[in-house]
C-alpha cells in the first residue's frame, strides 16, 4: 500500500507500483488538468510538484511518489489564481492550452527558487516543456510579469 498526499488530501494506492503518477492522478483520481504528451519526460505536459519541486509525472512510478506531497494544477490556484496563472491570462499565453498546465507548474517552480530569473535562467528551466502552438515568447514575458509576485 502506497500512501501519499495529493493536493492536500491523504491517498492510498494498492495497484501496480510501477504505474506512473500521471496515470494515477488522471485515470484514478480524475484530476485531468495534468496532461499526457509523450510518456518519456520529453515534453513536460505532465509536470506536477512533488514536495514543491517540478517533476515529470509520466516517468515517476507510484513507488517513488510514496510518502510525498503531490500538487497538481487543480490545486495551484485553489485559493485564488496563482500569480503565474494571472500573468498567463493577462498576456493571453495559451493557444490550444494543452501544454499550459505543465508550463505553469514548471514556471511556478522556477519562480519559487529564482524569483527574478534572467532570460537564460528561464530558457534553462523551461526547455523541457514543449509548446507546439509556439507560445514561448509569451511564456517568457509572463514569467517576467509574475516574477517577484510569488511566495
Amino acid at each position: 500500500m502506497i500512501k501519499l498526499k495529493v493536493n492536500g488530501i491523504d491517498r492510498s494506492f494498492d495497484g501496480d507500483p510501477d504505474m506512473p503518477l500521471l496515470w494515477y492522478v488522471r485515470d484514478i483520481l480524475a484530476l485531468t488538468g495534468t496532461k499526457f504528451g509523450c510518456g518519456m519526460a520529453l515534453c513536460g505536459a505532465c509536470t506536477v510538484h512533488k514536495n514543491g519541486q517540478a517533476i515529470r509525472s509520466c516517468v515517476t512510478p507510484m513507488s517513488s511518489a510514496a510518502n510525498s506531497e503531490i500538487r497538481t494544477i487543480e490545486d495551484l490556484g485553489a485559493n485564488g489564481l496563482h500569480p503565474v496563472q494571472k500573468a498567463w491570462m493577462e498576456l493571453n499565453v495559451p493557444q490550444c492550452g494543452y501544454c499550459q498546465s505543465g508550463q505553469i507548474m514548471q514556471a511556478a517552480s522556477l519562480l519559487k527558487g529564482t524569483p527574478h530569473p534572467t532570460d537564460n535562467e528561464i530558457d534553462e528551466a523551461m526547455a523541457g516543456n514543449i509548446c507546439r502552438c509556439g507560445t514561448y515568447q509569451r511564456i517568457r514575458q509572463a514569467i517576467k510579469l509574475a516574477a517577484g509576485k510569488t511566495a
Partner: peptide
C-alpha cells in the same frame, strides 16, 4: 482563458 490556465478545460484526453 481561465479554464485553460487552471486545468479545467476538458480536452479529448
Amino acid at each position: 482563458l481561465e479554464n485553460l490556465c487552471t486545468g479545467k478545460a476538458v480536452f479529448g484526453m
